[in-house]
Simulated assay, not measured.
Amino acid sequence: MKIASYNVENLFDMNDDGSEYEEYIPNTAWGWTSDMYRIKLSHTATVIRDIGADIIGLQEIESEIALKDLKAEINRQGLYYPYYAFAKTRNSAVNVALLSRYPIQSALKHPVNYSGKYRDILEAKININGKTVHMFVNHWKSKSGPESERLACAKRLLLRLKELPHNEPFVLLGDFNSHYEEYKTFLKSRKLNNTEGITGINHILHTIDDDNNPITYETLQKSTDTLYNLWYDLTEEKRWSHLFRGKGEALDNIIIPHALADGQGIEYIRGSFERFDPDYLFDKGKPYRWKSSRNYPKHHLGEGYSDHLPIYALFRI
């Protein structure tokens, strides 16, 4: 079984709901038209088809309409997802979703708070050949804001994880806007570090130990209260899915608990985690993001894919 995560970069439908980014308001000078929408759907569907995941978490989907249109386009390209879940956050321009080839028993959305400032976390309970696994699709606050905002997301997620039955299998995935070693990378930034060195992804989710050492796969096998970030299965030079000012960041993550490494039921296949990085997803060494003109009047060019690379991992049933 292949599980993946992909930030598709701004998949907006053709309805004017009043919450769109300026460049995605339909039929303005920006040129977000039905034809442009179809191109974006086709490009996004091609990537998802080529990943070939059984379950894929998606970020930056505007609406359930956009998700259904994407699902239909993926089907046209030869990959069928019978099941889906979507979490619409009030006043949010973009949201999180999940497509699955396995039945979704239930889906919940968990508001971080009720201000509308944070995107809801999507939880889908999936039936895999009689066994269940909880998928949590995340899109935490961006680094335009301080770490305290991502801390709030992590605390809400952890609160739900603690409610699950002991050793219940789950997978955390999505765009956490956090590096797998955020506790190292954000320390020197006054803008980010307003939490006295505490990070959501590392300290709250316990992907590091009490001595600030990363949780290893071997540690995970012995411990029921830590989590393992699958980026550590890759060589260091490949541990990035997004570029910021020319520097690689691993903002997208897949994180697993002891239950997926204990030799029972559904198991992570160690060493199977990969970044999906075919040549067509790159432009001059950078992720081939969805393009708009640099000259005025600015407009969509109908080229590119996303500013994030997808990630995936294999699991044994």
Rank of each mutant, 00 (worst) to 15 (best):
I121Q: 04
R150G: 02
S148P: 08
K109Q: 14
E149V: 07
S178E: 14
L164E: 02
A124F: 01
K184A: 11
E163K: 13
I128R: 02
H179L: 06
G116L: 14
K131V: 06
R160H: 13
D120L: 00
S148A: 11
R101T: 15
H139L: 10
E168M: 04
I121F: 04
K143E: 14
Y183S: 07
N113S: 08
L159W: 10
S115H: 06
H139Y: 11
P146A: 12
P111I: 01
L157R: 00
L99Q: 03
Y180S: 14
L99C: 09
W140Q: 03
S148D: 11
E123I: 03
R150A: 03
I126A: 00
H139S: 08
N177R: 09
S178D: 14
K125S: 08
H110Q: 10
E149W: 11
K117T: 13
E168T: 10
K117D: 11
V112W: 00
K143M: 09
K117E: 08
P111E: 07
E182Y: 02
R156M: 15
H110A: 07
L151Q: 05
A154G: 03
R150Q: 09
E147F: 00
V133C: 12
E147C: 04
K125F: 03
L151H: 00
R101L: 14
P165T: 10
N129F: 05
